[in-house]
């Protein structure tokens, strides 16, 4: 089976897909570009395109990158290939019952197999999320989030949506060492300064915090949140000492 590179998969997103929505420069900077000569660790091309399409409905591009531009699909791929995706945190002994929403996850699947099986059943009639236009994609994701109108066998649609949405948020906001949050996209957006956290001189001050993000790997970020930056430009903003 041929191993398509990540870039090749991304370029197959189609005229109405991510490539069309994404300026070339942003594409070149996104996480696919760094990993683009490597094949996926767990996903296949269809799954990657589905997840990119869905992730960009959940977190679309604005002044800050979309989910896929921030490396969320790479993040999900690595997570599904690793212990989490393979069920490390899940008790998977039977028998399996449907249960109530209050009883939580009852699917006879690891996260990886839930997503693989779920996508295959969603697209079994060869309609691909990636082929829909923007409005149709949003409508599809809305219906999936409500868990209605889908018969996915032993994959509860709501569980599938919740799992993907959780992974998308993790990929957008987790430390960049996991492959997402490219260029601190998520942290810069909200103004989270990162892992090097020491605030005894600031915690009681009503003022923006001037440091851009810095993750576990100690790579400095470049900009503040839009909110912090505009406040710091203000004339009367209290300056932090030291």
């Amino acid at each position: 089976m041929p191993q398509f590179s990540r870039r090749a998969v991304l370029m197959q997103l189609g005229a109405s897909g991510l490539a069309a929505l994404t300026p070339g420069a942003a594409l070149a900077q996104n996480r696919y570009a760094e990993l683009d000569t490597q094949p996926w660790s767990y996903l296949d091309g269809n799954e990657a395109r589905f997840l990119a399409s869905m992730a960009d409905v959940l977190i679309p591009e604005d002044d800050f990158p979309s989910a896929s531009q921030a490396g969320v699909v790479d993040f999900i791929d690595l997570q599904l290939a690793g212990p989490y995706g393979q069920g490390a945190g899940l008790y998977l002994e039977g028998p399996f019952g449907d249960g109530t929403p209050e009883q939580g996850w009852q699917a006879d699947h690891t996260p990886a197999s839930l997503i693989r099986t779920g996508i295959a059943r969603l697209e079994r009639d060869d309609t691909r999320l990636v082929d829909l236009d923007a409005d149709e994609r949003e409508e599809f994701v809305t219906r999936l989030s409500e868990g209605k109108d889908f018969d996915l066998g032993d994959v509860p649609a709501k569980t599938l949506f919740d799992e993907i949405w959780a992974l998308v948020k993790e990929g957008y906001f987790a430390d960049p060492i996991y492959g997402g949050n490219k260029g601190y996209a998520g942290w810069e957006m909200v103004g989270f300064p990162g892992a090097h956290a020491y605030y005894p001189d600031h915690v009681d001050k009503n003022a923006p915090f001037p440091a851009p993000p810095r993750g576990i790997a100690h790579v400095p970020g470049t900009r503040h949140s839009a909110d912090t930056a505009s406040a710091l430009r203000g004339a009367d903003t209290p300056k932090e000492e030291g």
Partner: peptide, 15 residues
């Protein structure tokens, strides 16, 4: 709960 408006609201309210 998600999408463009959610993203904007997260950004405006986090701090």
């Amino acid at each position: 709960k998600w999408g463009a408006e959610w993203k904007q609201a997260v950004r405006e309210n986090y701090l």
